[in-house]
Write a protein that binds this DNA or RNA. Structure first.
Length: 591
DNA sequence: GTGAAGGGCCAC
DNA sequence: AAACGTGGCCCTTCAC
């Protein structure tokens, strides 16, 4: 593929090129960088493509003339990048958005992300790949050679091959955009695509902002828990060795306590009637009778605290910012939920001793907001069940209200046990819980569990009907859809009862979980716009929770801003019940 | 040595 | 016996 390009290296050419590019409605956009993290390296090239060829802006000459970020000669380029009127077709725009934000100081406006579009179109089909080369191949048939991607972009003189690569990567985006835009329209994915595209910049900024982690607090907790883990390990070794102690004259037989195979063997040796696995919920009933089982559970708990939440997370604290800058994948799950890694800030234990380590930096506050029972509100909205809706509209405690309705007593007469049943059932139905599992988690017999569930569904007839018709529909059409139009293709063998059952649960759950993700994404965009002229910075999100860091004196106003953005985001998709958001201002990631 | 698979467990 | 949805991380085991 031959490609025409122009290389721009001085102020005059920047002005002229940007003027010409401004006439275009849609532009391909790409960058080449010397590292993967914008904190570590330099932005070398900024490329645009139009139907008339590619323009490559070399940042090196500008950096040599006193830096790139404040350079007035680059103003036309910054304006073009930030402009919402010009569509920028970008593959994985979060990457480029971070680099231009950090190095040029501007936002990337008008995003059309071919990576996210490809994920939406694939709708959960796992065998599809989503690199630019794969996506270009799939939608346009063009073969891309990515061998220069990892070449030396810091070199003073770039080779012809490097420049051609840079130009070609940008040029391929326009034909790709035409194909993908058609496909998004045909699949009725335009609304969710826009939602995703508008989420890119807020997420890019969140990653750049990072979340402050108090290393000293984390280390203190870790030192403590490591000592306990060592002690528990000793004690557990002693207890497990009892079964074979007579056979070993020369001290105790050590087993690997982290090996479930060895642990299972050792417990069997002691004559303990072991269940299928050594998972905590299966061992729990045996803990009262068998001290080694109880000790194993204690060991596992502290061992988890010392490893999964140990030294490793400290390696993600950047020395230059003092903060962790995790990777957020905005379509991390096929339901549309985010996933997070390096480190995963969505799985930090809820206990105060962990959460207090994530705190506001000096002079700042954290504003922490979360949706109150958003998934159940979505379910109420989808099902249109008047009693279920009423339980929310009443404004009283939801689980108490549902318990009152199900057990036919006054709300003030609901016992703690009744509320607990209702609560677990309320959560369980979102996942398609069955009577046996419900019985297992409540301690009810199979019959009592069935009776309680029958009572529940006869109280909420329309909810029951919704769940049934929804399950029938998704297995019939083999596709599930959220409120924004996000889709998930379901694959199952209709002759296999287990697969059909899984598909029904999955197909019922996906629109609920996915709509919750839609709502969070919408609120992130609204929030991003509302925080623009404030000290507020997005620092973390956990599915239904948003955390903003801001100047202490501005915290109360920003709390109101955040709550409003989240409520408005929710109200775009949920209308039949109120959307409730709880907000707290704190020094730490705790209430 | 490396990587995949599976067990186990943290979050929502 | 199991059949409650989504993710990532740590660890062991096992294959190459």
């Amino acid at each position: 593929m031959d490609v025409y390009f122009q290389l721009v290296t001085d102020a005059e050419a920047v002005k002229a090129a940007c003027e010409r590019l401004s006439a275009e409605e849609t532009l391909g956009f790409d960058t080449e960088t010397t590292e993967l993290d914008p904190h570590d390296g330099d932005l070398r090239l900024v490329q645009f493509s139009s139907g008339k060829g590619s323009v490559i802006f070399d940042m090196l000459p500008f950096r040599e003339k006193g830096g790139v970020r404040e350079n007035a000669e680059l103003a036309p380029l910054r304006d073009l990048i930030a402009s919402e009127r010009h569509r920028k077709v970008v593959h994985n725009a979060k990457f480029d958005a971070k680099w231009v934000r950090h190095h040029l100081g501007c936002e990337l406006g008008g995003v059309f992300d071919t990576y996210l579009a490809s994920l939406l179109i694939a709708a959960g089909e796992t065998e599809r790949r989503h690199s630019l080369a794969d996506v270009a191949q799939f939608f346009t048939g063009v073969e891309l050679d990515k061998s220069e991607q990892v070449s030396d972009w810091a070199s003073p003189e770039l080779s012809q091959s490097q420049l051609e690569y840079a130009a070609r990567d940008a040029a391929v985006l326009l034909p790709l955009h035409r194909q993908m835009a058609d496909r998004l329209k045909a699949d009725d994915l335009e609304r969710v695509a826009e939602l995703e595209f508008e989420t890119v910049v807020p997420v890019a900024e969140m990653e750049l902002n990072g979340f402050f982690l108090d290393e000293e607090r984390w280390r203190e907790r870790l030192t403590e828990v490591k000592a306990v883990a060592e002690k528990k390990a000793e004690e557990l070794q002693d207890l497990l060795a009892a079964g074979v102690a007579q056979a070993t004259l020369f001290g105790r037989t050590e087993i690997n306590l982290d090996s479930h195979t060895q642990v299972m063997g050792a417990l069997l040796n002691l004559g303990i009637p072991m269940p299928e696995s050594t998972r905590a919920w299966q061992l729990q009933p045996l803990a009262g009778k068998y001290p080694p089982v109880a000790k194993l559970l204690e060991y596992r708990e502290v061992q988890k605290a010392a490893t999964s939440f140990g030294e490793n997370i400290l390696e993600f604290v950047r020395p230059d910012t003092g903060r962790v800058h995790a990777d957020f994948r905005q379509i991390g799950a096929p339901t549309g939920r985010f996933s997070c890694s390096h480190p995963n800030l969505q799985q930090i234990p809820h206990e105060t001793k962990y959460r207090r380590c994530f705190r506001a930096s000096e002079g700042k506050k954290l504003v922490i907001a979360d949706y109150s029972q958003i998934e159940l509100r979505i379910l109420a909205d989808f099902s249109d069940d008047s009693a279920f809706i009423e339980a929310f509209v009443s404004g009283q405690d939801f689980h108490t209200m549902t318990a009152a309705q199900v057990f036919k007593v006054k709300p003030e007469e609901v016992t703690a046990e009744q509320r607990s049943f209702a609560k677990r059932l309320n959560f369980g139905i979102v996942y398609g819980v069955g009577a046996s599992r419900f019985g297992l988690m409540t301690g009810l017999s199979q019959t009592d569990a069935e009776n309680t569930m029958r009572k529940y569904f006869s109280t909420y007839r329309k909810l029951d009907e919704y769940l049934r018709t929804s399950a029938a529909k998704v297995t019939d059409e083999r596709i599930a859809r959220t409120a924004s139009g996000r889709t998930l293709k379901l694959r199952f063998d209709a002759a296999n009862r287990q697969e059909v059952g899984a598909a029904r649960r999955y197909g019922v759950n996906m629109p609920i979980q996915g709509t919750s993700a839609d709502i969070l994404k919408r609120s992130l965009r609204l929030l991003h716009d509302d925080l623009r002229s404030t000290s507020g910075k997005l620092v973390n999100i956990v599915h239904d929770e948003v955390i903003v860091e801001c100047d202490a004196q501005e915290a109360d106003t920003i709390a109101a801003t955040l709550e409003s953005a989240m409520v408005r985001g929710g109200e775009e998709y949920v209308r039949k019940v109120p959307v409730k958001v709880d907000v707290n201002v704190s020094d730490e990631w705790t209430k």
